[in-house]
Design a binder for these strands. Structure first.
Lengths: 140, 140
DNA sequence: TTCTTATTGCAAGTCTATTGCAAATAACAT
DNA sequence: ATGTTATTTGCAATAGACTTGCAATAAGAA
């Protein structure tokens, strides 16, 4: 149950806790895969929750702004996915090319690489994408 | 001049070397930034080369299939870019969030990480995306 | 309960990329 | 050169992810 803390975050920025935001949050909470806006829309509809796709997009935007949700751009998908942050540390993913299953990777191996890049390029590095595809054990 | 070798590759798969393919290749050859389909389309139009955007997309698709071009999905751009392979080794990029400049990184630090992921997840890893954003020296 | 203002749903629009099909053209044989 | 054929092109239409404008709705405070 993360609702009370989230309500606080919403209120602190002049926002409101609504049915639809609750529904999106609850779905993200009980689903252990990163979800796309369309998937959230379709899943909620199957559960007879009335919500517009536009509202899903706007809700995800707000949750991202509040830092409650992380936006993912996985390898070769051409869409954005979202997962609850819930105190989890920064990590990456591997997606099965056959069945679409997404598995969390436990590490981010880029701390040293980032320092190296900053020295080599003189850039100040801000963010990165690191996502893998492959075949999961079942699909090999 | 990579035309002859490329013509050979095209012919080997029942394809033809055409004006438009030459134009796209020549542009990629003389531009030292990865280009998007739209950018290629607009640049060629400025140079009075008559080509349709659809043809640019189809050309890039063919060049990718032949392994002459690499498709890039940089961090937080929402479009695909292309660069000539030209014997270059697998590498990654950093893009400046302010001016859009894209700089090649000289390394891919993921060999060991890939092995580790395969052991941890039992996936067979196929491909990965690794792209950075930040501020370039001029824009800091 | 009333009031203010954030939020929602609907319609329409944007942007990247793809597909169908008839017309143009490259490559090859004559 | 000329004709033949299959590939390629341009145009129009379409797909799919995501965004915007606006009137109607609903959350939360008084």
């Amino acid at each position: 149950m993360l609702e009370p803390a989230i309500k606080k975050g919403l209120r602190a920025t002049g926002r409101r806790m609504t049915r639809t935001r609750q529904a999106v949050l609850a779905l993200l909470e009980r689903t252990h895969q990163p979800l796309s806006a369309t998937e959230i829309f379709e899943q909620l509809h199957q559960e007879k929750v009335s919500i517009d796709l536009v509202t899903v997009y706007r809700t995800l935007h707000v949750l991202k702004e509040l830092g409650l949700v992380v936006q993912l751009d996985l390898h070769q998908e051409g869409l954005l996915r979202y997962e609850l942050k819930e105190g989890r540390t920064h990590h990456h993913h591997i997606r099965c090319q056959v069945c679409g299953r997404i598995v969390d990777l436990l590490l981010c191996p880029l701390k040293k690489v980032t320092k190296l890049i900053e020295r080599q390029t003189q850039f100040i590095v801000d963010e990165h994408t690191l996502e893998f595809t492959g075949l999961c054990p079942e699909c090999q």
